[in-house]
């Protein structure tokens, strides 16, 4: 039993990082109906910014986090402006392919700039294990990861539900042209969406790098893919869905590794995705909406 609870804690730790990244996918999809495959690489860029802030400039963790969030928000907005905006009215497949291209561009750009050699993330948080019950312990790093993720998700929920910007975001996601007619600045709203999504991605990246100690140009691929699955599983375009999806994926993965086999973990994750999509094509929390013609 103790082991099971321990595994659940491990799963929540991984899941909270997936959830943070999944939010970026789901927000962008909700608003511009674009699967932004470059989002996994935003995570990598965030990890690099954090790495340089921590290792080269020796700034405290909190500041590194903020710097990395701001820079990533700028990167996200720039990518949207340069690569996606000109394709706003093009067929969706063009934008999707552009996103894939952007992903490769970013990976190889960082490989060129900083080399493919993984870099060791400095241990910013002195590791402590807190025994909460016999045989069950949680590291302070896991607590920080989970709390930070949940906190940011609540903040996001607040922004989307209670602020004017959030209202504009919801309006644009519902109907772009109607929102425009009502005086919503659509381009600005989309920019803000990319900025927020990328900033959350940066936090995810930095936490991922600190949890797993390394930073390298291809590190965004796997967590990016898993987070995308999480977003789809929860219902892409639905913000609480991304959070739920992230935690579900993290738990399934960890429990499979713990009780079945590590090599089966990914198969289980993707298998469950397929099953959910068969019975509920819009995802767990997704609403079935009629396609507008």
């Amino acid at each position: 039993m103790a082991q099971f609870i321990q595994q659940v804690i491990n799963g929540l730790n991984v899941g909270s990082i997936y959830a943070l990244i999944a939010l970026g996918y789901t927000m962008v999809y909700g608003i511009v109906k674009l699967i932004n495959f470059a989002h996994g690489d935003i995570l990598m860029i965030g990890a690099y910014f954090g790495f340089f802030a921590l290792a080269t400039f020796n700034v405290p963790f909190g500041l590194a986090l903020v710097v990395s969030m701001i820079l990533c928000a700028l990167v996200g907005m720039t990518i949207d402006r340069l690569a996606y905006k000109p394709l706003r009215n093009a067929p969706r497949i063009s934008a999707l392919i552009t996103a894939l291209g952007m992903s490769m561009l970013l990976q190889n750009l960082f490989r060129l700039l900083f080399g493919a050699q993984p870099r060791r993330m400095p241990a910013v948080i002195a590791l402590k294990r807190i025994e909460i019950a016999p045989g069950i312990a949680i590291s302070n790093l896991a607590i920080i990861t989970i709390l930070l993720s949940v906190g940011l998700m609540l903040l996001l929920e607040f922004i989307v539900k209670k602020t004017k910007t959030g209202k504009a975001m919801r309006a644009v996601s519902e109907d772009k042209s109607a929102a425009k007619l009502m005086g919503v600045n659509v381009d600005k709203t989309i920019s803000i969406t990319f900025a927020i999504g990328s900033a959350l991605g940066a936090v995810g990246g930095l936490l991922y790098a600190i949890n797993y100690y390394q930073v390298e140009p291809y590190m965004g691929m796997m967590p990016g893919l898993k987070a995308f699955v999480a977003a789809v599983l929860g219902g892409i375009g639905v913000i609480p869905g991304a959070m739920l999806g992230g935690f579900v994926i993290g738990l399934i993965e960890t429990l499979t590794k713990g009780y079945v086999s590590t090599t089966w973990a990914d198969a289980f994750v993707f298998g469950i995705l397929i099953i959910v999509l068969i019975f509920k094509p819009a995802g767990i929390l997704g609403k079935n909406t009629r396609e507008k013609v």
Partner: peptide, 20 residues
């Protein structure tokens, strides 16, 4: 006897099992 792949970064699950 545990297997993993290059894509794995999170060993907490199998290590928890091994610890027991």
């Amino acid at each position: 006897a545990e297997g993993y792949t290059d894509a794995d970064n999170d060993f907490s699950a199998i290590l928890t099992k091994v610890k027991a």
